[in-house]
Design a protein around this nucleic acid. Sequence first.
DNA 1: GTGAAAGCGCTAACAG
DNA 2: CTGTTAGCGCTTTCAC
Lengths: 329, 329
Amino acid sequence: MMSLADVAAALGLSKSTISRVIAGKGNFSEQTRNRVLEYIAHYDYRPNVNAQRLATNKTGNIGVVMPVDAFLSVNTFFQVCLMGICQEAVEHNYDIVVTSATEKDITYLRRLVSQRSVDGVILMRSLVQDMCMNYLSETAVPFVVIGSVPDEAVMQVDVAHAKACEELTARLLETTGKPVGVILGSMHYIVNLNRRKGCKEAARKAGADLTGKVISDVFTKESVDGAVDRLLAQSAGTLVCGDDQIGLTVLGYLDERGILAGKDIRLASFYDNPALKHRSVTAIEVDDMALGALAVEKLVGRLDGKYVSDRKPGYLINYRASTGEFGGA
Amino acid sequence: MMSLADVAAALGLSKSTISRVIAGKGNFSEQTRNRVLEYIAHYDYRPNVNAQRLATNKTGNIGVVMPVDAFLSVNTFFQVCLMGICQEAVEHNYDIVVTSATEKDITYLRRLVSQRSVDGVILMRSLVQDMCMNYLSETAVPFVVIGSVPDEAVMQVDVAHAKACEELTARLLETTGKPVGVILGSMHYIVNLNRRKGCKEAARKAGADLTGKVISDVFTKESVDGAVDRLLAQSAGTLVCGDDQIGLTVLGYLDERGILAGKDIRLASFYDNPALKHRSVTAIEVDDMALGALAVEKLVGRLDGKYVSDRKPGYLINYRASTGEFGGA
DNA sequence: GTGAAAGCGCTAACAG
DNA sequence: CTGTTAGCGCTTTCAC
């Protein structure tokens, strides 16, 4: 395996010169530059990353934490987001090291950090009580969280969930006479807190009363079914689901009961999903990959001391047949 | 940040001695061992991984390739498998570096490998024409693929898909008088080839004729619906789906058409999924995490030159209401 | 049982 | 513009 020294020797130059032109910093003549570049291209020389890292005291790695307790056999958000992260990381010459954590067990993350395996970390979800966040803050490891956290000091990127949910709920409220019911996921998740906030705000502005019609902390099939039953008992004409998982479960339950979404009842979801789309369910669409990419951009900006834009990822509300033509004002 | 030298100085020993007791190889007295271990535990000394890696010429990283063209917004197999990989990797003191690739673009993988960022690679799917596999073979990078490939020289772990599918199909065949239709995914995937093989074998043994009733290469909603239509037109009494994605899509389509699975028609899937379970669909269950873990075990065995067991991950066939009581012989 | 010393392959002053 | 010289923090012979 070729080393810097080999290249230097072959070209009759010093290691430092080679190093400089490869790094593209420092001084060297146009001519040497060409010679070196040509040589390494020809012989396909690749610097030894570990040596670079040891010398610079940087790992070139970004850690990504997968929440392994987040119904990974159903939710695809994390993996899609991860793909966005990978892609953007390559642009900036970082590798992605993944590890897992649960709400109450962050030993793998601790290991990763204390081994100095990463320069920074990306958290793909944010909890109200977030051990990962606390740990990283304490240890002063640069990190960005995907989600919205109250502490403005922590770097974060997020879709304006509250606003999106408010917008959708408002529209739903103004196009129906019958009650609107909302089924939300775990309140340990900040995002669900924000979704609820959005709903309530829309209700407030519309002067609608959602009391008893916003059911939170449902994630099992049983609790979803139960929530639907309760809402139906209150003669809800519209069912709004906190995320795609809930949406799909509701859809399945309605199918079981022979209730047709878009005809017998209106259905919407705060998070889109191909399966929801196939069934023509109105839903808020987020670009998960872009979100991941943005997180990397932000983290790398911090790590490499570059300017970081503060743009927010957008969202799209796809109005589909499930909230279609009927139930109008 | 503490270094080996610091520990050595503090204890009045040499770096080599400390290094030895930490690595647990070489000679040292029981007493020094205790002193050192105690000290590093107390001061929470952590070796610098990059230095270790440079010195030993190993990265301590395992690369994992996520097939980004594999409908990641629907399939959860890869992320669940990845979690199994992560977990097992920790046991063996490896970190997981993920990258993505598509059927025809493996530039990220190339980058990872040529940067010497990983000691070995895990491929989570196997294609008939697999660029990743070809590349890794050429470059002599140790790798294991999750799936079954003809070349026995490549390390692989897989569930006995063909056998499982044969078993399920056989059972379905013997409990019905009406035709059985099968809808399979992309034939670029080796696993789908094996599933088809299993079906056909079952049909052969049962003396059943599946001609025109095994439809392959379907993955879009449109093609799934079309396949169902065709099979229904042949008065199929049982629909077998190649994977969960197809299964769910079929279920959705049946719902749309008001056909009740388990009553009007029998439905089964070659791959299980929580949503399928909720709808009581008969399906083959595989432990994805275990599969990932096994891959790591195998790769690490090769990397660290240890013995590797050759056990195969098992599967479970969950017979549920969707193929229930009716249509019997 | 322990230590000295050379090196892993690169970067980064500093000196010319 | 280029070369020299120290390291980075660890592992690993080889003496003692």
